[in-house]
Design a protein around this nucleic acid. Sequence first.
DNA 1: TCGATATTTCCACGATCATGGAAACATGGA
DNA 2: TCCATGTTTCCATGATCGTGGAAATATCGA
Lengths: 120, 120
Amino acid sequence: MEQKTAVLALAALAQETRLGVFRLLVQQGESGLAAGEIAAALGLAPATLSFHLKELAHARLVRSRQDGRFIYYAADYAGMNQLLAFLTENCCAADGAACAPGSVCAPVTKPRNASRKVKP
Amino acid sequence: MEQKTAVLALAALAQETRLGVFRLLVQQGESGLAAGEIAAALGLAPATLSFHLKELAHARLVRSRQDGRFIYYAADYAGMNQLLAFLTENCCAADGAACAPGSVCAPVTKPRNASRKVKP
DNA sequence: TCGATATTTCCACGATCATGGAAACATGGA
DNA sequence: TCCATGTTTCCATGATCGTGGAAATATCGA
């Protein structure tokens, strides 16, 4: 994943309304929710929701699927996990011990790339 | 972590310059880099860098430590991991199988609240 | 003390973003 | 076919963001 892609995804999530939509969809699982259901659940104007859904879809964080007059939106778990992998990969690349223990960022046992020390 | 806090952190990372700074610091480990070194490494104007560092620090993604005339900035691994935990927690809360296999988002088999093993 | 260096704050500019009303675009049913 | 419903696009508005020059602040060495 390129930095530009990561920025796009992070920007999509870095907004109260969109993060709310995304989390709602994440909790719904693969089946997702129709746009109208999302709007009702979060109290959003149709135009506003549509704008944010497009943003999330463009960032590969949600997917849409049409069923009759309804359009169902579901979290794109693959896209989300790519973003998480991008972030954790950078975390662990430096120094395993630096990553908090018990976190999602597991230490790398053998640091092949020597990160040079800067003495303060 | 509250949603507002997560939005703050995500917004801090959702910007090309800041994500660049953050990743640079993550790779430097706990020792960090002086502001001037960061500016030189990324070719940023002092005022611009200062603005972004403040943003990252406010989001608890970097920490600063003064040493003489220099101010060293280092990634705040704890803060970063809290953000990751927030995202993965929401991911897994829905349906373990929904999370991509081999991702950082491990399926929860039983509500034993185990933030442990991540797929190698 | 003074001057050099490191960093931040102040400020103003242009750019981008979030919002929702109104209209347009689908789709299904009668 | 026409109508009702679900969703998107268009558009205008106000708000927030990213940037860097200039000045201010802080620290060190002489």
